[in-house]
Design a protein around this nucleic acid. Structure first.
Lengths: 298, 298
DNA sequence: AACGATCGTGCCGTTATACGGAACAGCCCC
DNA sequence: GGGGCTGTTCCGTATAACGGCACGATCGTT
Protein backbone atom coordinates (compact mmCIF):
# COMPACT_ATOMS: atom_id res chain seq x y z
CA UNK A 1 0.00 0.00 0.00
CA UNK A 2 2.95 2.32 0.23
CA UNK A 3 3.14 4.37 -2.97
CA UNK A 4 6.93 4.51 -3.10
CA UNK A 5 7.57 5.35 -6.71
CA UNK A 6 5.45 7.50 -8.98
CA UNK A 7 2.77 5.26 -10.40
CA UNK A 8 0.90 6.22 -13.53
CA UNK A 9 -1.95 8.66 -13.17
CA UNK A 10 -0.46 10.40 -10.18
CA UNK A 11 0.10 13.66 -11.96
CA UNK A 12 -3.13 15.48 -12.52
CA UNK A 13 -1.75 18.51 -14.22
CA UNK A 14 -3.81 18.85 -17.36
CA UNK A 15 -1.66 19.34 -20.45
CA UNK A 16 -3.89 21.85 -22.20
CA UNK A 17 -3.37 22.72 -25.82
CA UNK A 18 0.40 22.78 -25.81
CA UNK A 19 2.54 23.67 -28.81
CA UNK A 20 -0.04 25.65 -30.63
CA UNK A 21 1.79 28.93 -30.68
CA UNK A 22 4.86 27.92 -32.67
CA UNK A 23 4.41 27.76 -36.40
CA UNK A 24 1.09 29.50 -36.67
CA UNK A 25 1.80 31.82 -39.56
CA UNK A 26 5.27 30.63 -40.28
CA UNK A 27 6.81 33.72 -38.68
CA UNK A 28 7.72 34.67 -35.08
CA UNK A 29 9.86 31.71 -34.21
CA UNK A 30 10.75 33.14 -30.80
CA UNK A 31 7.64 34.29 -29.03
CA UNK A 32 8.24 35.90 -25.63
CA UNK A 33 12.00 36.04 -25.49
CA UNK A 34 13.47 35.75 -21.97
CA UNK A 35 15.02 39.23 -22.28
CA UNK A 36 18.53 37.94 -21.53
CA UNK A 37 20.25 39.94 -18.81
CA UNK A 38 17.37 42.22 -17.98
CA UNK A 39 15.18 41.19 -15.08
CA UNK A 40 11.61 40.49 -15.96
CA UNK A 41 8.77 42.38 -14.49
CA UNK A 42 7.68 40.66 -11.29
CA UNK A 43 6.52 42.75 -8.33
CA UNK A 44 5.41 39.69 -6.40
CA UNK A 45 8.82 38.10 -6.39
CA UNK A 46 10.38 41.43 -5.47
CA UNK A 47 7.98 41.80 -2.56
CA UNK A 48 8.88 38.44 -1.10
CA UNK A 49 12.60 39.01 -1.61
CA UNK A 50 12.17 42.15 0.47
CA UNK A 51 10.14 40.39 3.16
CA UNK A 52 12.58 37.48 3.42
CA UNK A 53 15.45 39.92 3.64
CA UNK A 54 13.67 41.90 6.35
CA UNK A 55 12.79 38.79 8.35
CA UNK A 56 16.33 37.41 8.25
CA UNK A 57 18.21 40.48 9.33
CA UNK A 58 18.73 41.77 12.85
CA UNK A 59 17.55 45.37 12.64
CA UNK A 60 13.77 45.56 12.73
CA UNK A 61 13.49 48.75 10.66
CA UNK A 62 14.86 49.71 7.26
CA UNK A 63 14.81 52.36 4.56
CA UNK A 64 13.99 52.47 0.86
CA UNK A 65 17.48 52.90 -0.50
CA UNK A 66 18.86 50.35 1.93
CA UNK A 67 16.55 47.71 0.46
CA UNK A 68 17.37 48.81 -3.07
CA UNK A 69 21.11 48.59 -2.44
CA UNK A 70 21.02 45.20 -0.71
CA UNK A 71 18.71 43.52 -3.20
CA UNK A 72 20.03 45.24 -6.30
CA UNK A 73 16.98 47.11 -7.49
CA UNK A 74 16.30 50.72 -8.39
CA UNK A 75 15.27 52.94 -5.45
CA UNK A 76 12.13 53.92 -7.29
CA UNK A 77 11.24 50.25 -7.66
CA UNK A 78 11.85 49.50 -4.01
CA UNK A 79 9.76 52.51 -3.12
CA UNK A 80 6.89 51.37 -5.30
CA UNK A 81 6.90 47.83 -3.91
CA UNK A 82 7.13 49.06 -0.32
CA UNK A 83 4.25 51.44 -0.92
CA UNK A 84 2.18 48.58 -2.29
CA UNK A 85 3.08 46.49 0.76
CA UNK A 86 2.07 49.40 2.94
CA UNK A 87 -1.43 49.61 1.46
CA UNK A 88 -1.68 45.84 1.83
CA UNK A 89 -0.92 46.38 5.56
CA UNK A 90 2.16 44.19 5.45
CA UNK A 91 4.70 46.88 6.25
CA UNK A 92 4.32 50.15 8.11
CA UNK A 93 6.11 53.41 7.36
CA UNK A 94 6.91 55.63 10.31
CA UNK A 95 7.16 59.23 9.06
CA UNK A 96 8.93 60.36 12.22
CA UNK A 97 11.93 58.13 11.65
CA UNK A 98 11.48 57.62 7.88
CA UNK A 99 11.79 53.88 8.32
CA UNK A 100 9.72 50.84 7.40
CA UNK A 101 8.73 47.99 9.76
CA UNK A 102 6.73 44.79 9.48
CA UNK A 103 3.18 45.26 10.76
CA UNK A 104 1.36 43.36 13.46
CA UNK A 105 -1.05 42.20 10.78
CA UNK A 106 1.78 40.43 9.00
CA UNK A 107 2.83 39.01 12.36
CA UNK A 108 -0.72 37.76 12.86
CA UNK A 109 -0.63 36.09 9.46
CA UNK A 110 2.75 34.57 10.26
CA UNK A 111 1.64 33.26 13.64
CA UNK A 112 -1.45 31.64 12.23
CA UNK A 113 0.68 29.87 9.66
CA UNK A 114 3.13 28.79 12.35
CA UNK A 115 0.33 27.41 14.51
CA UNK A 116 -1.23 25.56 11.58
CA UNK A 117 1.57 23.10 10.83
CA UNK A 118 0.08 19.74 11.92
CA UNK A 119 3.36 18.07 12.82
CA UNK A 120 3.96 20.62 15.58
CA UNK A 121 0.70 19.94 17.36
CA UNK A 122 1.38 16.22 17.30
CA UNK A 123 5.06 16.46 18.23
CA UNK A 124 5.29 19.20 20.87
CA UNK A 125 3.92 17.14 23.79
CA UNK A 126 6.26 14.30 22.81
CA UNK A 127 9.26 16.65 22.97
CA UNK A 128 8.43 17.48 26.57
CA UNK A 129 8.06 13.82 27.48
CA UNK A 130 11.38 12.98 25.87
CA UNK A 131 13.14 15.62 27.94
CA UNK A 132 11.56 14.28 31.12
CA UNK A 133 12.53 10.70 30.25
CA UNK A 134 16.08 11.35 29.11
CA UNK A 135 17.05 14.68 30.63
CA UNK A 136 18.41 15.81 27.26
CA UNK A 137 17.36 18.54 24.83
CA UNK A 138 14.81 17.40 22.26
CA UNK A 139 14.33 18.90 18.78
CA UNK A 140 11.66 18.63 16.13
CA UNK A 141 13.04 18.58 12.60
CA UNK A 142 10.95 18.89 9.44
CA UNK A 143 11.91 17.80 5.94
CA UNK A 144 11.20 19.76 2.77
CA UNK A 145 11.06 17.53 -0.26
CA UNK A 146 11.33 20.37 -2.75
CA UNK A 147 14.53 21.64 -1.21
CA UNK A 148 15.66 18.23 0.05
CA UNK A 149 16.78 19.77 3.29
CA UNK A 150 15.92 19.73 6.97
CA UNK A 151 15.00 22.47 9.42
CA UNK A 152 14.56 22.43 13.19
CA UNK A 153 11.40 24.26 14.12
CA UNK A 154 10.91 23.45 17.81
CA UNK A 155 12.85 22.37 20.86
CA UNK A 156 12.40 21.68 24.56
CA UNK A 157 15.51 22.37 26.56
CA UNK A 158 17.26 19.99 28.90
CA UNK A 159 17.60 21.06 32.55
CA UNK A 160 21.36 20.49 32.29
CA UNK A 161 23.47 23.64 32.21
CA UNK A 162 25.81 22.16 29.58
CA UNK A 163 24.13 21.54 26.23
CA UNK A 164 24.55 22.02 22.53
CA UNK A 165 21.96 24.27 20.98
CA UNK A 166 21.15 24.05 17.30
CA UNK A 167 19.74 26.93 15.32
CA UNK A 168 16.10 26.92 14.37
CA UNK A 169 14.67 28.09 11.05
CA UNK A 170 17.75 27.24 8.99
CA UNK A 171 17.92 24.74 6.15
CA UNK A 172 20.45 21.96 6.79
CA UNK A 173 21.88 19.20 4.63
CA UNK A 174 20.77 15.64 5.29
CA UNK A 175 23.99 13.67 4.95
CA UNK A 176 25.67 14.60 8.25
CA UNK A 177 24.38 14.65 11.80
CA UNK A 178 21.55 12.78 13.49
CA UNK A 179 18.86 15.21 12.34
CA UNK A 180 19.48 14.50 8.66
CA UNK A 181 20.35 10.82 9.04
CA UNK A 182 17.09 10.23 10.87
CA UNK A 183 15.32 11.20 7.64
CA UNK A 184 17.52 10.38 4.65
CA UNK A 185 17.52 6.52 4.91
CA UNK A 186 13.73 6.46 5.01
CA UNK A 187 13.14 8.44 1.83
CA UNK A 188 12.20 6.66 -1.43
CA UNK A 189 15.28 5.15 -3.09
CA UNK A 190 15.37 7.56 -6.09
CA UNK A 191 15.17 10.54 -3.75
CA UNK A 192 18.08 9.20 -1.70
CA UNK A 193 20.19 8.89 -4.83
CA UNK A 194 19.19 12.37 -5.89
CA UNK A 195 20.33 13.76 -2.55
CA UNK A 196 23.63 11.87 -2.74
CA UNK A 197 24.13 12.98 -6.32
CA UNK A 198 23.31 16.62 -5.71
CA UNK A 199 24.80 17.37 -2.32
CA UNK A 200 28.47 18.01 -1.86
CA UNK A 201 29.55 15.74 1.01
CA UNK A 202 31.78 18.16 2.90
CA UNK A 203 33.90 16.89 5.78
CA UNK A 204 32.47 19.02 8.58
CA UNK A 205 34.30 17.12 11.34
CA UNK A 206 36.75 14.17 11.36
CA UNK A 207 33.76 11.88 11.99
CA UNK A 208 31.73 13.06 8.98
CA UNK A 209 31.02 10.30 6.46
CA UNK A 210 31.96 11.65 3.05
CA UNK A 211 31.91 8.49 0.91
CA UNK A 212 28.52 7.71 -0.69
CA UNK A 213 29.04 3.96 -0.33
CA UNK A 214 29.89 4.25 3.35
CA UNK A 215 26.74 6.33 3.78
CA UNK A 216 24.62 3.71 2.02
CA UNK A 217 25.95 1.00 4.35
CA UNK A 218 25.12 3.26 7.29
CA UNK A 219 21.56 3.70 5.97
CA UNK A 220 20.99 -0.06 6.09
CA UNK A 221 21.99 -0.16 9.74
CA UNK A 222 19.80 2.85 10.56
CA UNK A 223 16.77 1.32 8.87
CA UNK A 224 17.22 -1.91 10.83
CA UNK A 225 17.65 -0.10 14.14
CA UNK A 226 14.85 2.35 13.54
CA UNK A 227 16.97 5.19 14.89
CA UNK A 228 20.38 6.76 14.30
CA UNK A 229 23.18 7.70 16.68
CA UNK A 230 25.61 10.33 15.42
CA UNK A 231 28.75 11.02 17.42
CA UNK A 232 30.37 14.27 16.36
CA UNK A 233 29.50 14.00 12.67
CA UNK A 234 28.41 17.59 12.35
CA UNK A 235 29.67 19.26 15.52
CA UNK A 236 32.72 18.00 17.38
CA UNK A 237 31.79 16.87 20.89
CA UNK A 238 28.06 16.70 20.15
CA UNK A 239 25.99 13.52 20.08
CA UNK A 240 22.63 13.21 18.35
CA UNK A 241 19.99 10.47 18.46
CA UNK A 242 17.12 10.65 15.98
CA UNK A 243 14.13 8.70 14.67
CA UNK A 244 11.86 9.45 11.69
CA UNK A 245 8.28 10.74 11.70
CA UNK A 246 5.92 9.53 8.96
CA UNK A 247 3.02 11.55 7.60
CA UNK A 248 -0.44 10.51 6.43
CA UNK A 249 0.88 9.38 3.06
CA UNK A 250 3.50 7.19 4.78
CA UNK A 251 6.27 9.47 3.64
CA UNK A 252 8.96 10.78 6.01
CA UNK A 253 8.10 14.34 6.91
CA UNK A 254 10.53 14.97 9.77
CA UNK A 255 12.14 13.50 12.84
CA UNK A 256 12.67 13.77 16.57
CA UNK A 257 16.22 14.44 17.72
CA UNK A 258 17.93 14.27 21.09
CA UNK A 259 21.10 16.37 21.32
CA UNK A 260 23.62 15.98 24.12
CA UNK A 261 27.31 16.64 24.79
CA UNK A 262 29.65 13.67 24.35
CA UNK A 263 30.61 13.99 28.01
CA UNK A 264 27.20 12.69 29.05
CA UNK A 265 27.11 9.96 26.42
CA UNK A 266 28.25 6.35 26.54
CA UNK A 267 27.64 3.49 24.11
CA UNK A 268 25.57 1.80 26.83
CA UNK A 269 23.14 4.70 26.78
CA UNK A 270 22.69 4.57 23.02
CA UNK A 271 20.07 1.83 22.99
CA UNK A 272 18.02 3.43 25.76
CA UNK A 273 17.99 6.86 24.13
CA UNK A 274 17.30 5.34 20.74
CA UNK A 275 14.34 3.35 22.01
CA UNK A 276 12.84 6.41 23.65
CA UNK A 277 13.19 8.57 20.54
CA UNK A 278 11.89 5.87 18.21
CA UNK A 279 8.88 5.20 20.41
CA UNK A 280 8.05 8.89 20.66
CA UNK A 281 8.46 9.34 16.90
CA UNK A 282 6.16 6.41 16.11
CA UNK A 283 3.52 7.89 18.41
CA UNK A 284 3.70 11.15 16.49
CA UNK A 285 3.42 9.23 13.21
CA UNK A 286 0.34 7.45 14.48
CA UNK A 287 -1.25 10.75 15.51
CA UNK A 288 -0.65 12.08 12.02
CA UNK A 289 -2.40 9.14 10.46
CA UNK A 290 0.55 7.13 9.19
CA UNK A 291 -0.11 3.42 8.89
CA UNK A 292 3.49 2.42 8.51
CA UNK A 293 5.96 3.26 11.24
CA UNK A 294 9.22 2.24 12.85
CA UNK A 295 9.35 -0.94 14.83
CA UNK A 296 11.90 -0.66 17.61
CA UNK A 297 14.24 -3.64 17.66
CA UNK A 298 14.47 -5.02 21.16
CA UNK B 1 11.86 64.95 25.01
CA UNK B 2 8.76 62.90 24.31
CA UNK B 3 7.38 63.93 20.91
CA UNK B 4 3.73 63.55 21.88
CA UNK B 5 2.00 65.71 19.37
CA UNK B 6 3.15 66.41 15.84
CA UNK B 7 5.70 69.19 16.25
CA UNK B 8 7.17 70.84 13.19
CA UNK B 9 9.68 68.77 11.29
CA UNK B 10 8.44 65.49 12.70
CA UNK B 11 7.18 64.24 9.38
CA UNK B 12 10.06 63.53 7.09
CA UNK B 13 8.09 62.56 4.04
CA UNK B 14 9.53 64.81 1.41
CA UNK B 15 6.84 66.64 -0.54
CA UNK B 16 8.44 66.34 -3.93
CA UNK B 17 7.15 68.37 -6.81
CA UNK B 18 3.48 68.01 -6.01
CA UNK B 19 0.80 69.67 -8.05
CA UNK B 20 2.76 69.84 -11.20
CA UNK B 21 0.67 67.45 -13.18
CA UNK B 22 -2.62 69.28 -12.94
CA UNK B 23 -2.96 72.25 -15.23
CA UNK B 24 0.02 71.55 -17.39
CA UNK B 25 -1.58 72.13 -20.74
CA UNK B 26 -4.96 73.08 -19.50
CA UNK B 27 -6.38 69.68 -20.33
CA UNK B 28 -6.55 66.31 -18.51
CA UNK B 29 -8.07 67.46 -15.27
CA UNK B 30 -8.30 63.93 -13.92
CA UNK B 31 -5.05 62.13 -14.40
CA UNK B 32 -5.11 58.46 -13.31
CA UNK B 33 -8.76 58.03 -12.55
CA UNK B 34 -9.59 55.50 -9.80
CA UNK B 35 -11.58 53.41 -12.30
CA UNK B 36 -14.73 53.42 -10.19
CA UNK B 37 -16.15 49.94 -9.70
CA UNK B 38 -13.50 48.08 -11.65
CA UNK B 39 -10.68 46.61 -9.59
CA UNK B 40 -7.28 47.95 -10.37
CA UNK B 41 -4.44 45.72 -11.39
CA UNK B 42 -2.59 44.69 -8.30
CA UNK B 43 -1.09 41.21 -8.17
CA UNK B 44 0.63 41.96 -4.88
CA UNK B 45 -2.57 42.76 -3.07
CA UNK B 46 -4.22 39.71 -4.61
CA UNK B 47 -1.36 37.53 -3.42
CA UNK B 48 -1.70 38.68 0.17
CA UNK B 49 -5.46 38.37 0.09
CA UNK B 50 -4.93 34.75 -0.92
CA UNK B 51 -2.31 34.14 1.76
CA UNK B 52 -4.41 35.72 4.50
CA UNK B 53 -7.38 33.67 3.38
CA UNK B 54 -5.30 30.49 3.38
CA UNK B 55 -3.83 31.19 6.81
CA UNK B 56 -7.18 31.93 8.42
CA UNK B 57 -9.09 28.90 7.22
CA UNK B 58 -9.06 25.40 8.68
CA UNK B 59 -8.22 23.22 5.71
CA UNK B 60 -4.51 23.32 4.95
CA UNK B 61 -4.88 22.73 1.20
CA UNK B 62 -6.93 24.44 -1.47
CA UNK B 63 -7.57 24.61 -5.19
CA UNK B 64 -7.46 27.30 -7.86
CA UNK B 65 -11.16 27.70 -8.45
CA UNK B 66 -11.86 27.56 -4.73
CA UNK B 67 -9.67 30.62 -4.19
CA UNK B 68 -11.21 32.37 -7.17
CA UNK B 69 -14.73 31.75 -5.92
CA UNK B 70 -14.06 32.80 -2.32
CA UNK B 71 -12.12 35.95 -3.16
CA UNK B 72 -14.11 36.94 -6.22
CA UNK B 73 -11.51 36.78 -8.94
CA UNK B 74 -11.28 35.01 -12.28
CA UNK B 75 -9.90 31.45 -12.14
CA UNK B 76 -7.22 32.36 -14.63
CA UNK B 77 -6.16 35.23 -12.38
CA UNK B 78 -6.03 33.04 -9.29
CA UNK B 79 -4.05 30.52 -11.28
CA UNK B 80 -1.55 33.13 -12.40
CA UNK B 81 -1.04 34.51 -8.90
CA UNK B 82 -0.70 31.04 -7.39
CA UNK B 83 1.83 30.11 -10.04
CA UNK B 84 3.84 33.21 -9.24
CA UNK B 85 3.68 32.34 -5.55
CA UNK B 86 4.85 28.86 -6.42
CA UNK B 87 7.98 30.09 -8.18
CA UNK B 88 8.58 32.38 -5.23
CA UNK B 89 8.47 29.22 -3.06
CA UNK B 90 5.62 30.53 -0.96
CA UNK B 91 3.06 27.94 -1.93
CA UNK B 92 3.52 24.38 -3.17
CA UNK B 93 1.39 22.56 -5.70
CA UNK B 94 0.97 18.84 -5.21
CA UNK B 95 0.23 17.28 -8.62
CA UNK B 96 -1.03 14.06 -7.02
CA UNK B 97 -3.90 15.75 -5.23
CA UNK B 98 -4.12 18.85 -7.45
CA UNK B 99 -4.04 21.06 -4.38
CA UNK B 100 -1.96 23.96 -3.15
CA UNK B 101 -0.33 24.28 0.29
CA UNK B 102 1.83 26.82 2.08
CA UNK B 103 5.50 25.85 1.92
CA UNK B 104 7.92 25.30 4.75
CA UNK B 105 9.90 28.23 3.41
CA UNK B 106 6.95 30.51 4.07
CA UNK B 107 6.65 28.91 7.48
CA UNK B 108 10.34 29.66 8.08
CA UNK B 109 9.77 33.28 7.09
CA UNK B 110 6.73 33.44 9.35
CA UNK B 111 8.53 31.95 12.32
CA UNK B 112 11.44 34.32 12.01
CA UNK B 113 9.03 37.23 12.02
CA UNK B 114 7.20 35.79 15.01
CA UNK B 115 10.44 35.36 16.93
CA UNK B 116 11.57 38.89 16.10
CA UNK B 117 8.87 40.83 17.91
CA UNK B 118 10.75 42.40 20.85
CA UNK B 119 7.82 42.57 23.24
CA UNK B 120 7.55 38.77 23.25
CA UNK B 121 11.13 38.20 24.33
CA UNK B 122 10.72 40.66 27.18
CA UNK B 123 7.28 39.49 28.27
CA UNK B 124 7.32 35.68 27.98
CA UNK B 125 9.37 35.02 31.14
CA UNK B 126 7.10 37.43 33.04
CA UNK B 127 4.03 35.48 31.94
CA UNK B 128 5.45 32.34 33.51
CA UNK B 129 6.25 34.14 36.74
CA UNK B 130 2.76 35.59 36.92
CA UNK B 131 1.22 32.14 36.62
CA UNK B 132 3.47 30.83 39.38
CA UNK B 133 2.63 33.76 41.64
CA UNK B 134 -1.10 33.88 41.07
CA UNK B 135 -2.03 30.45 39.76
CA UNK B 136 -4.09 32.06 36.99
CA UNK B 137 -3.71 32.12 33.20
CA UNK B 138 -1.60 35.01 31.91
CA UNK B 139 -1.88 36.63 28.47
CA UNK B 140 0.27 39.01 26.47
CA UNK B 141 -1.74 41.54 24.48
CA UNK B 142 -0.30 43.85 21.82
CA UNK B 143 -1.79 47.07 20.53
CA UNK B 144 -1.84 48.17 16.90
CA UNK B 145 -2.08 51.92 16.55
CA UNK B 146 -3.02 51.83 12.90
CA UNK B 147 -5.95 49.56 13.54
CA UNK B 148 -6.62 50.82 17.09
CA UNK B 149 -7.23 47.28 18.24
CA UNK B 150 -5.70 44.67 20.49
CA UNK B 151 -4.53 41.12 19.89
CA UNK B 152 -3.42 38.39 22.28
CA UNK B 153 -0.27 36.77 20.97
CA UNK B 154 0.94 34.60 23.87
CA UNK B 155 -0.32 32.91 26.98
CA UNK B 156 0.86 30.68 29.81
CA UNK B 157 -1.87 28.46 31.16
CA UNK B 158 -2.99 28.14 34.74
CA UNK B 159 -2.71 24.72 36.39
CA UNK B 160 -6.39 24.96 37.30
CA UNK B 161 -8.71 22.71 35.31
CA UNK B 162 -11.38 25.42 35.11
CA UNK B 163 -10.32 28.47 33.10
CA UNK B 164 -11.45 30.86 30.42
CA UNK B 165 -9.37 30.76 27.29
CA UNK B 166 -9.24 33.70 24.93
CA UNK B 167 -8.44 33.37 21.26
CA UNK B 168 -5.04 34.40 20.00
CA UNK B 169 -4.34 36.20 16.73
CA UNK B 170 -7.66 38.01 16.57
CA UNK B 171 -8.16 41.75 16.61
CA UNK B 172 -10.31 42.91 19.54
CA UNK B 173 -11.93 46.23 20.44
CA UNK B 174 -10.45 48.21 23.31
CA UNK B 175 -13.53 49.49 25.12
CA UNK B 176 -14.62 46.28 26.88
CA UNK B 177 -12.70 43.75 28.91
CA UNK B 178 -9.48 43.98 30.88
CA UNK B 179 -7.24 43.46 27.85
CA UNK B 180 -8.48 46.61 26.11
CA UNK B 181 -8.98 48.69 29.23
CA UNK B 182 -5.40 48.02 30.26
CA UNK B 183 -4.35 49.94 27.14
CA UNK B 184 -6.99 52.50 26.21
CA UNK B 185 -6.66 54.86 29.23
CA UNK B 186 -2.91 55.18 28.67
CA UNK B 187 -3.08 56.27 25.04
CA UNK B 188 -2.63 59.95 24.10
CA UNK B 189 -5.85 61.91 24.66
CA UNK B 190 -6.68 62.49 20.96
CA UNK B 191 -6.25 58.79 20.23
CA UNK B 192 -8.62 57.91 23.07
CA UNK B 193 -11.25 60.24 21.65
CA UNK B 194 -10.72 58.80 18.20
CA UNK B 195 -11.33 55.29 19.54
CA UNK B 196 -14.45 56.41 21.41
CA UNK B 197 -15.70 58.26 18.36
CA UNK B 198 -15.05 55.45 15.91
CA UNK B 199 -15.94 52.31 17.84
CA UNK B 200 -19.50 51.21 18.31
CA UNK B 201 -19.85 50.51 22.05
CA UNK B 202 -21.86 47.31 21.88
CA UNK B 203 -23.32 45.83 25.06
CA UNK B 204 -21.56 42.46 25.06
CA UNK B 205 -22.70 41.55 28.59
CA UNK B 206 -24.86 43.28 31.21
CA UNK B 207 -21.66 44.62 32.79
CA UNK B 208 -20.32 46.22 29.60
CA UNK B 209 -19.86 49.99 29.86
CA UNK B 210 -21.52 51.53 26.82
CA UNK B 211 -21.65 55.23 27.77
CA UNK B 212 -18.55 57.22 26.70
CA UNK B 213 -18.73 59.40 29.80
CA UNK B 214 -18.89 56.42 32.11
CA UNK B 215 -15.88 54.99 30.30
CA UNK B 216 -13.95 58.25 30.70
CA UNK B 217 -14.61 58.21 34.45
CA UNK B 218 -13.43 54.61 34.53
CA UNK B 219 -10.22 55.62 32.72
CA UNK B 220 -9.36 58.08 35.48
CA UNK B 221 -9.65 55.36 38.09
CA UNK B 222 -7.57 52.93 36.01
CA UNK B 223 -4.82 55.49 35.51
CA UNK B 224 -4.65 56.13 39.24
CA UNK B 225 -4.58 52.45 40.14
CA UNK B 226 -2.13 51.51 37.43
CA UNK B 227 -4.18 48.43 36.59
CA UNK B 228 -7.73 47.51 35.66
CA UNK B 229 -10.11 44.88 37.01
CA UNK B 230 -12.92 43.83 34.69
CA UNK B 231 -15.68 41.61 36.04
CA UNK B 232 -17.69 40.08 33.24
CA UNK B 233 -17.52 43.09 30.90
CA UNK B 234 -16.79 41.01 27.83
CA UNK B 235 -17.55 37.42 28.88
CA UNK B 236 -20.10 36.62 31.57
CA UNK B 237 -18.44 34.88 34.49
CA UNK B 238 -14.91 35.85 33.48
CA UNK B 239 -12.66 38.23 35.40
CA UNK B 240 -9.66 40.00 33.90
CA UNK B 241 -6.87 41.99 35.52
CA UNK B 242 -4.52 43.96 33.27
CA UNK B 243 -1.69 46.50 33.32
CA UNK B 244 -0.07 48.41 30.44
CA UNK B 245 3.34 47.86 28.85
CA UNK B 246 5.23 50.90 27.53
CA UNK B 247 7.67 50.83 24.63
CA UNK B 248 10.93 52.68 24.02
CA UNK B 249 9.10 55.81 22.92
CA UNK B 250 7.03 55.77 26.13
CA UNK B 251 3.91 54.83 24.21
CA UNK B 252 1.63 51.97 25.26
CA UNK B 253 2.37 49.00 23.05
CA UNK B 254 0.46 46.26 24.86
CA UNK B 255 -0.43 44.83 28.23
CA UNK B 256 -0.28 41.84 30.55
CA UNK B 257 -3.60 40.22 31.43
CA UNK B 258 -4.64 37.70 34.05
CA UNK B 259 -7.85 35.84 33.21
CA UNK B 260 -9.79 33.80 35.77
CA UNK B 261 -13.32 32.53 36.37
CA UNK B 262 -15.46 34.63 38.71
CA UNK B 263 -15.74 31.61 41.01
CA UNK B 264 -12.12 32.03 42.03
CA UNK B 265 -12.33 35.81 42.35
CA UNK B 266 -13.17 38.02 45.29
CA UNK B 267 -12.80 41.79 45.75
CA UNK B 268 -10.14 41.09 48.37
CA UNK B 269 -7.98 39.39 45.76
CA UNK B 270 -8.22 42.31 43.31
CA UNK B 271 -5.45 44.39 44.86
CA UNK B 272 -3.05 41.46 45.10
CA UNK B 273 -3.58 40.38 41.50
CA UNK B 274 -3.42 43.98 40.33
CA UNK B 275 -0.15 44.63 42.09
CA UNK B 276 1.41 41.51 40.59
CA UNK B 277 0.33 42.33 37.05
CA UNK B 278 1.36 45.96 37.31
CA UNK B 279 4.77 45.05 38.68
CA UNK B 280 5.37 42.48 35.95
CA UNK B 281 4.24 44.93 33.27
CA UNK B 282 6.55 47.67 34.52
CA UNK B 283 9.47 45.22 34.43
CA UNK B 284 8.67 44.44 30.80
CA UNK B 285 8.48 48.18 30.05
CA UNK B 286 11.88 48.69 31.64
CA UNK B 287 13.37 45.87 29.56
CA UNK B 288 12.05 47.51 26.43
CA UNK B 289 13.71 50.79 27.28
CA UNK B 290 10.72 52.81 28.49
CA UNK B 291 11.59 55.54 30.94
CA UNK B 292 8.06 56.18 32.02
CA UNK B 293 6.08 53.39 33.66
CA UNK B 294 3.28 52.59 36.06
CA UNK B 295 3.75 53.23 39.76
CA UNK B 296 1.72 50.79 41.79
CA UNK B 297 -0.30 52.52 44.49
CA UNK B 298 0.17 50.79 47.82
C1' DA C 1 -20.94 3.46 -20.78
C1' DA C 2 -22.18 7.90 -21.29
C1' DC C 3 -23.27 11.79 -19.07
C1' DG C 4 -22.63 16.51 -16.80
C1' DA C 5 -20.04 19.01 -13.59
C1' DT C 6 -16.30 19.84 -11.91
C1' DC C 7 -11.11 20.58 -12.02
C1' DG C 8 -6.30 22.88 -13.49
C1' DT C 9 -4.36 24.96 -17.50
C1' DG C 10 -3.30 27.70 -21.89
C1' DC C 11 -4.18 31.37 -25.14
C1' DC C 12 -6.31 35.59 -26.56
C1' DG C 13 -6.49 41.00 -27.16
C1' DT C 14 -6.54 44.95 -24.46
C1' DT C 15 -4.51 48.13 -21.53
C1' DA C 16 -3.08 49.45 -17.01
C1' DT C 17 1.16 49.45 -14.77
C1' DA C 18 6.02 47.82 -13.44
C1' DC C 19 10.35 49.39 -14.50
C1' DG C 20 14.82 52.26 -14.22
C1' DG C 21 16.72 56.76 -14.75
C1' DA C 22 16.74 61.36 -13.78
C1' DA C 23 15.47 64.96 -11.00
C1' DC C 24 13.33 66.95 -6.85
C1' DA C 25 13.17 68.87 -1.89
C1' DG C 26 14.65 68.26 2.70
C1' DC C 27 17.96 66.80 6.04
C1' DC C 28 22.58 66.20 8.24
C1' DC C 29 27.56 66.63 8.71
C1' DC C 30 31.59 68.79 7.59
C1' DG D 1 27.43 76.62 1.60
C1' DG D 2 28.83 72.49 -0.38
C1' DG D 3 28.45 67.51 -0.78
C1' DG D 4 26.15 63.45 0.39
C1' DC D 5 22.56 61.36 2.10
C1' DT D 6 17.33 60.46 2.43
C1' DG D 7 12.32 59.52 0.58
C1' DT D 8 9.63 60.82 -3.34
C1' DT D 9 7.80 62.10 -8.07
C1' DC D 10 7.79 62.23 -12.99
C1' DC D 11 8.39 60.12 -17.49
C1' DG D 12 8.46 56.91 -21.78
C1' DT D 13 8.42 52.39 -22.94
C1' DA D 14 7.83 47.65 -22.81
C1' DT D 15 5.26 44.08 -20.70
C1' DA D 16 2.58 41.32 -17.98
C1' DA D 17 -2.03 41.50 -15.40
C1' DC D 18 -6.60 40.81 -16.45
C1' DG D 19 -11.07 38.21 -17.62
C1' DG D 20 -13.20 35.39 -21.04
C1' DC D 21 -13.14 31.42 -23.44
C1' DA D 22 -11.85 26.81 -24.58
C1' DC D 23 -9.35 22.50 -23.83
C1' DG D 24 -8.49 17.96 -21.86
C1' DA D 25 -8.71 15.24 -17.80
C1' DT D 26 -11.02 13.53 -13.79
C1' DC D 27 -14.81 12.49 -10.72
C1' DG D 28 -19.47 11.16 -9.33
C1' DT D 29 -23.81 9.99 -10.89
C1' DT D 30 -26.80 7.88 -13.81
Amino acid sequence: MTPRGGEAGGDRRAPGVGGQLAGRTGMRSRARKPAEGAERRNPLDKAFRILAWAADRDQPTWGVREVARELGMAPSTAYRVLSALETAEIVFFDPATAQYTLTMEFFRLASRVAAQVPIRRAALPRLGELVELTGETAYLGVYDETRMKLMYIDLVESPHPVQYTMARYEWLDLYAGAGGLGILPFLPEPEIEQVLGTTELKRLTPATITKPDALRREFEKIRQQGYVVSVGQRIVGAVGVAAPIFGPSDRVIGDLVLALPASRFSPRKAATLGRHVATAASIVSAHLGARESIQVTP
